[in-house]
Design a protein around this nucleic acid. Structure first.
Lengths: 197, 197
DNA sequence: AGGATGACTTGACATCGTGTCAATAGAGGC
DNA sequence: GCCTCTATTGACACGATGTCAAGTCATCCT
């Protein structure tokens, strides 16, 4: 399709993505201007700001090929390998989705629907944790005496977007250091075996 | 002092504390009503909502005797003991300050001054982590090959208010389970030695 | 007693962003 | 020629913060 052949809806999503992944404080008017339409026209496509944010996250998933990139994780044969791959895949994802995630979290302050949408996405991520840990338990590699549920919650907490913000944005860690530490801490915490220093 | 002898400023802070520790979505008008004054009178004492929130956190610290309760932590003789005491003290603190913390974090979305105030408090907490870990390093108990700075950041992340929210509020952990896991994970992560199952 | 001061009240108003509504315009389908 | 869909402009309501002005009331000073 040519440059201007893109339907308006998609131009809006692209605009929203541009602005949201870049800076913060994105208003409906900003998105409209970036998409080259009027603010009111925006409301013809997305009834509320929350609706736009949610649609944009789906759009982002599609663009980044979230599903395809998770295929290797699902294909892992051992629990240990699956855990490692899952942590790496997620860690690589966080910076990509962060702007949008932040916008959705901020929106949750005043909008219950946004809170719900964000919670659903986090629950989805938790499923990824759960799947890896169930496999780990199946292999007998899960730490002795640790229930899968507890392990899931701990891993889910460890991998939270807020923790990424804390280490990378606030404390200035490199993405590589972040991912390395997350993998190491996850493995030790959940297998109970200490890795290399 | 008698019931009504309290100066207005204090009645306001008490009112704010009441509302903020209880529910969310506290407006200036709500606080004023609870304190028994007009909304405008509130602005005679606190110029902005952020100012009120910050003053209320200080007020809370004072009421809860934050300083006194940290004395045993500072008195610890070994790094291991200090780390353990610090984690426990902080974990016990989080639910007490949570309402206010949440309000300040939410305020940070739209107000840079609030963001600064919250960051300062978090930096303060980080100092507590740093002190414990410096002592741990002095004792030679810090995990081999782990710089104190890195350890500090990891502990700081682990103990974040957001992580408490995730485990206790979202996942429904009990406060006891939360504190136990935090202590265990902190000790293992930072000493490199695995504890009891 | 007279007068200033300080704390508080009521009421109106500006601002900012979201979301709504009405009137209008152009393009394409049939 | 008419209909519908998309978009435009302009005005407006709402909710919360913060400001401004005018007036009340008690207390303190001398």
């Amino acid at each position: 399709m040519s440059i201007e052949a893109k339907p308006t809806r998609e131009r809006i999503l692209d605009a929203a993505l541009d602005l949201l992944t870049a800076g913060q404080g994105v208003r409906m008017g900003d998105v409209a201007k970036q998409a080259g339409i009027s603010r009111q026209a925006l409301y013809l496509h997305f009834g509320t700001r929350t609706e736009l944010l949610v649609a944009t996250t789906l759009h982002l998933d599609q663009i980044k090929g979230r599903d395809a990139r998770l295929a290797p994780v699902r294909a892992a044969e051992t629990g240990l390998e699956r855990l490692r791959l899952w942590v790496q895949a997620w860690c690589a994802f966080v910076p990509e989705i962060h702007g949008l995630a932040r916008a959705l979290m901020d929106q949750s302050v005043t909008d219950a629907e946004a809170a719900l949408a964000w919670a659903a996405r986090m629950e989805d991520m938790r499923q990824g944790c759960q799947a890896a840990l169930a496999m780990l338990a199946r292999d007998g590699s899960l730490r002795a005496g640790m229930p899968v549920d507890q392990a899931t919650d701990l891993l889910w907490m460890l991998l939270s977007v807020q923790n990424w913000e804390a280490l990378v944005q606030v404390r200035g860690w490199s993405q590589v250091d972040y991912a390395q530490q997350m993998e190491r801490q996850a493995l030790e915490m959940l297998t109970g075996r200490v890795g290399n220093p």
